[in-house]
Amino acid sequence: MQERLKELQAEAIEKVEQASSLKELNDIRVAYLGKKGPITEVLRGMGKLSAEERPVIGAFANEVRAAISAKMEAKQAELEEAAVQAKLASETIDVTLPGRPVKLGNHHPLTKIIEEIEDLFIGMGYEVAEGPEVEQDYYNFEALNLPKGHPARDMQDSFYITEDILLRTHTSPVQARTMEKHEGKGSIKIICPGKVYRRDNDDATHSHQFMQIEGLVVGENIRMSDLKGTLEVFAKKIFGEDREIRLRPSFFPFTEPSVEMDISCKICGGHGCSVCKHTGWIEILGAGMVHPNVLEMAGYDSRVFNGFAFGMGPERIAMLKYGVDDIRHFYTNDVRFLKQFAVEE
């Protein structure tokens, strides 16, 4: 009997080893270990055995069963793992296919420049001041030391609506209004961005509408050296640490002394090229110490208070910084242009 069980064990194990599917394995289980299987059948014949033999054979039969079961379990795990692997293999995808696009827009390049400048100055304690685009002649000109008939008004041909109302030609009236609101008291640190308008024919370098961003600091002890230091921080931050700055005396009716600031040309590194007209320098902004007439008109005592102001054109900055060659691109809004400014630097 033992012999028969041994045979069955060897036979079953061989079949298990050869099984190639879970179903096959299950069939083997039913065939050998089931109630109608050969082992059960062998055990049925145990009645004929002696009392001494019965437990021995019984124990042996259980060993055989256990051995077959263990083998089956191992084989089952093996087959299951193979099935998982096969399934995973069948699920392989081409990871180089493009992903599902996430729709993304971005800032207009001028907004990008303006916010960058705003943030820089906010970090230095400035607030952002805004004012009307349609302005009174008084705030646009007179309060800025440009009385009627002043020759410098020649420099800014304007869009008038009535004799006293016009589209502002610069954002400086925001400065005049802010100073006036302070009624001659306390210090001011503002940055004023916004749209301005001039009677220019639109071409590659002119636009009848464009942006400006200006800054104004008023206080009891503001020095020209402070202006110089502030402008240097600005230039290095916006154009890069490696850029040189140069201040030149200039003239604006609302500042005295007046300044124009150049930065060293990025294209040629200051050696001279067509972009910088062979000077190595690129003009970037106008600035100066607030003219005493402007302070006085706004109600500040110019013997006690002084200040500095600066102004620049985001279009020009964007053109220089990104190499844009035509100012009209900013206002035609070709999406192939707009989407180039998505990257956060």
């Binding site: 993304l104 827009g105 749209k195 509408q209 809004n333 989407k339």
Partner: peptide, 11 residues
Amino acid sequence: AGLYQAVTYSL
């Protein structure tokens, strides 16, 4: 949300 910012003329 997928929109690009445009800037156009006031006039």
